[in-house]
Design a binder for these strands. Structure first.
Length: 873
DNA sequence: CGGATCGAC
DNA sequence: CTATGTCGATCCG
């Protein structure tokens, strides 16, 4: 209670100041003390829009904390004990899997950008400098840090702190070059080392050390380089002089640590020739050697950490910064000692917010994190508390992960206020262009486009839309982004949208497999078995068919399918048929058309399609072409198979996966290069319209066939949600095509014409919407309201479905008070489960609050990134 | 899935 | 004189 109050009332400046990273001012002669720094920053920042927003965010965090504390209050001793037992059981397992056999090194260049600039501008050497701009600094040198000048601080504030500060503009090209030089050295110790941005890298030197033991001295001898031989020097003729004066002799690389210089070769160093040095064979020596060589080559210093896993190595490299190194020897006790008093904030993955939340629980150090493990398991998501547990036990990845596939790509830009829609659209287009370029470099195509906006009050909003066929070109991305932007503009109309940042992101990339086979939406359909087609119910304009592809994300998540199905009805309508259908979120003069008029979708001929309905449940062809009658039939069938359905889910999912491998490759990928916007969404349909002959296809997955010919084999409904959807889309038709069961068909199926034939159901003006869940007729003819209704129904259904599942892990975790656990377990479906994989020796299984460790970023992209040097110490 | 949030640099 | 970034991943509902 006491705590709660404190949190709630905590001084509003708390979080903000925290963020500014005001900390150890090394009691140095020059510089400012902490208080002075605080007040200057405050003065400069107070009242600004930025500050106001910071306060707001801070309040939100406080509210979160308050909620957490309330939850905590309700926890009973018994629950806690139970949790303790369970967590400790896990601890035992984790402890058994501890792997100390690897030697991981984290290398971190000191004040990298600033150091490079100082090297290249000797006149700046003894001055406080920062790299960046008046708006934002990327890093500062140590001299400037004494004034409180930090990375991620706007330059104009830094100037107030330190009027003498020299701000040097960023020069990524240069940093990239230096970085490359460093990497060349690193590669010698671990060819598979993992760069993290320009100034950091992880190495696994386990193998190197094994070999190194047997190396002759000569292989470990390095000469002092007093010549300037680096390329940089060409830029700077003073290099030699500078190097001599501030260079190696005064550099502490070899002599700074108090640790004995030698291990296995006690007096080597002394024996070494005058201008050379020999390094020992231990891990420490090897890393000293690396740092020595880096400094010789670049005249820049690096810090390093050596430990049995990446997390520890990283925290280690921070310890003796700058220009120092630290090792945690591979013993359990050494690891625990290191962690004992380590503030959790030092742990990679624990940021400002998590720190504050944990602090509210009285947790500041890693050992406290361990002590509270039971409580944490009740208050945080599984992914989070498991991560906490790993941290407090000192577990982490013991090998460097391969660069995993990237999951998204984005670009964003900050600018001074833009409020004219016209400018906003062209900016948007520009961003799409940039992004498209980057996507193409990596050959990626994604299905989800996200627009990010930050208004002049620093409030950030994102709006996303997932489309069926993946996008990658400027035009394709813009077509979607434009729509999102238009909606936002309209939403504040008649006021202008006043923004200071815009960003575009593409995610939902196709997997390799998908790339290969994904072609027509039909193919995706075969794969996922969860296609949704939808009949537009505004027949006044046109009848179109929309496919929604289901992603892999939730292999068995029927709930999401439902949600998505319902939601996508909205979105598809919105984005794809702006002109042809009502625009629920736009007024008539939608600004989306401001820059580029949306092209009219090609109306598809469907008038002469003779329709046959096949019930998606019983697979009987229905004689009647009366929709209502058909609906009734399906409803009956559905009711009859409800129970059976849930049991069959997994089985069907498996069979679906198996068949996937044999999907034919379709060739019409670029057929519609010219077709943009919604037209391309309809490519599959378009094609089928012109291709009536699909006799070569064996339609095994047809659910509703409305095509004239073709008998088809039956496919079991995959699960309840599938059925629900198909019913929901009563008047829709599913693309078919097929050859799931016909491998012979493969390979030879290169002709686009063979791919599919799909038909359209005639839209009847008097269509009645019947909710597939509750079976009630809906009065409305508005799709949006109908969707809303279905959504609600589906949610109800979810609860039912939940209670029916016997294997739902209700007993596993504290359920009495925290339905959050229920929800998260359910919602995350497979993903949560995946994360539970717990073999620390198997490397990163992190998620939740740890991020960067589990994700291997592409070096390439981080290179071009505007990086900000870490700012705590 | 979409939106917000977190963390790294 | 003004003026506070960019990116990717994860979590929650």
């Amino acid at each position: 209670m006491d705590n709660m109050k404190k949190v709630g009332n905590s001084s509003c400046s708390d979080g903000f100041l925290l963020r500014m990273g005001l900390n150890d001012n090394k009691a140095g002669m020059q510089g400012l003390d902490k208080e002075k720094i605080n007040s200057i920053i405050m003065k400069a920042t107070k009242g600004s829009r930025f500050y106001e927003n910071e306060l707001k965010k801070d309040q939100q965090v406080n509210q979160r904390i308050e909620k957490m504390m309330q939850l905590k209050e309700k926890i009973t001793t018994q629950q806690l004990l139970k949790a303790q037992l369970q967590v400790d059981k896990l601890v035992t397992e984790l402890e058994q899997s501890r792997n100390l056999s690897n030697t991981i090194v984290h290398i971190d260049m000191d004040a990298f950008y600033a150091a490079v600039e100082m090297r290249d501008h000797p006149e700046l050497k003894d001055k406080p400098i920062a790299v960046g701009s008046m708006s934002m600094l990327s890093t500062s040198n140590y001299h400037a840090r004494r004034y409180g000048v930090r990375a991620a601080m706007p330059g104009f504030i830094a100037k107030k702190l330190c009027p003498h500060l020299t701000i040097v503009p960023l020069n990524f090209e240069k940093y990239g070059k230096v970085s490359k030089e460093v990497r060349e050295i690193l590669a010698e110790y671990d060819p598979n080392f993992m760069p993290m941005g320009l100034d950091e890298a992880y190495l696994n030197i386990t193998e190197h050390l094994e070999e190194r033991v047997n190396w002759p001295e000569d292989k470990r001898r390095f000469v002092f380089n007093t010549e300037s031989t680096t390329e940089k020097d060409k830029d700077d003729t003073n290099m030699s002089a500078k190097f001599n004066e501030g260079g190696y002799s005064s550099s502490p690389v070899l002599f700074e640590d108090n640790t004995p210089l030698m291990d296995d070769h006690p007096d080597q160093r002394g024996q070494s020739a005058e201008n050379s040095v020999v390094f020992g064979t231990s891990a420490e020596e090897a890393v000293k050697e690396i740092r020595f060589r880096i400094e010789q080559k670049t005249q820049l210093t690096a810090s390093a950490g050596i430990a049995p896993n990446t997390t520890l190595a990283k925290m280690c490299s921070d310890r003796n910064k700058p220009n120092g190194q630290c090792r945690i020897v591979p013993e359990r006790q050494a690891v625990l000692d290191f962690l004992k008093d380590l503030p959790i904030r030092k742990v990679p993955g624990i940021g400002k917010v998590t720190e504050k939340m944990l602090k509210a629980l009285g947790i500041v150090t890693c050992s406290e994190l361990y002590q509270q493990r039971a409580l944490l398991s009740l208050l945080f998501s599984e992914a989070s508390w498991r991560n906490f547990l790993d941290i407090s036990l000192g577990l982490g990845s013991t090998h460097l992960e391969k660069d995993g596939e990237r999951k998204s790509m984005s670009t964003e830009r900050t600018f001074s206020e833009i409020n004219r829609a016209e400018d906003q659209y062209s900016l948007c287009r520009e961003l799409c262009r940039d992004l498209a370029q980057e996507l193409q470099k990596e050959g990626l195509k994604g299905k989800t486009v996200t627009l990010k906006l930050k208004n002049v009050n620093f409030e950030v909003k994102t709006r996303a839309l997932t489309v069926l066929s993946s996008v990658s070109t400027e035009e394709e991305i813009f077509a979607v982004a434009k729509e999102l932007l238009g909606t936002e503009i309209d939403s504040v109309a008649p006021h202008p949208l006043r923004i200071r940042l815009m960003g575009v992101r593409v995610s939902g990339f196709l997997s390799e497999e998908e790339k290969k086979y994904q072609q027509k939406s039909i193919t995706s359909f075969l794969k996922s078995g969860k296609e949704i087609s939808f009949l537009r119910l505004q027949p006044a304009k046109s009848n179109q068919e929309y496919f929604t592809e289901n992603s892999e994300a939730s292999p068995r998540g029927s709930f999401f399918d439902k949600k998505r199905a319902a939601r996508q009805l909205n979105h598809e309508n919105l984005s794809l048929n702006e002109t042809a259908c009502q625009q629920p979120f736009h007024d008539g003069k939608s600004s989306a058309n401001f820059v580029e008029e949306t092209k009219k979708a090609t109306d598809l001929e469907n008038s002469n399609v003779c329709t046959i309905f096949t019930c998606p449940v019983c697979f009987e062809e229905q004689s009647s072409d009366n929709l209502e009658e058909f609906n009734r039939h399906i409803d009956e069938c559905l009711n009859g198979t409800l129970v059976k359905d849930t049991v069959e889910i997994s089985k069907n999912d498996i069979s679906r996966e198996n068949t996937l491998k044999f999907l034919p490759q379709f060739q019409n990928e670029n057929v519609d290069e010219r077709q943009k916007n919604r037209t391309d969404q309809l490519a599959g349909a378009d094609q089928s319209a012109s291709t009536s002959d699909n006799s070569s296809s064996k339609s095994t997955k047809k659910i509703i066939q409305i095509v004239p010919d073709k008998p088809h084999s039956k496919r079991q409904p995959s699960n309840l949600s599938d059925i629900a959807r198909s019913v929901c889309m009563k008047q829709c038709l599913f693309p078919q095509k097929a050859s799931l069961d016909n491998k012979d068909h493969f390979g030879e199926t290169e002709r686009a014409e063979e791919t599919s034939s799909s038909c359209f159901l005639e839209a009847k003006e008097d269509s009645v919407l019947v909710c597939p869940v509750c079976n009630s007729e809906q009065k409305t003819t508005s799709l949006v309201s109908f969707n809303r209704h279905v959504d609600v129904c589906l949610n109800k259904g979810l609860i039912q479905e939940l209670t029916e599942k016997k294997d739902f892990p209700t007993e596993t975790y504290n359920m009495e008070n925290s339905n959050r656990v229920v929800v998260s377990n359910f919602f995350s479906g497979g993903s949560n489960r995946r994360q539970q994989c717990t073999n620390p020796s198997q490397g990163t299984k992190r998620s939740g609050l740890t991020t960067s460790q589990s994700v291997s970023k592409k070096a390439k992209s981080s290179d071009s990134k505007h990086t900000i040097e870490k700012f705590f110490k």
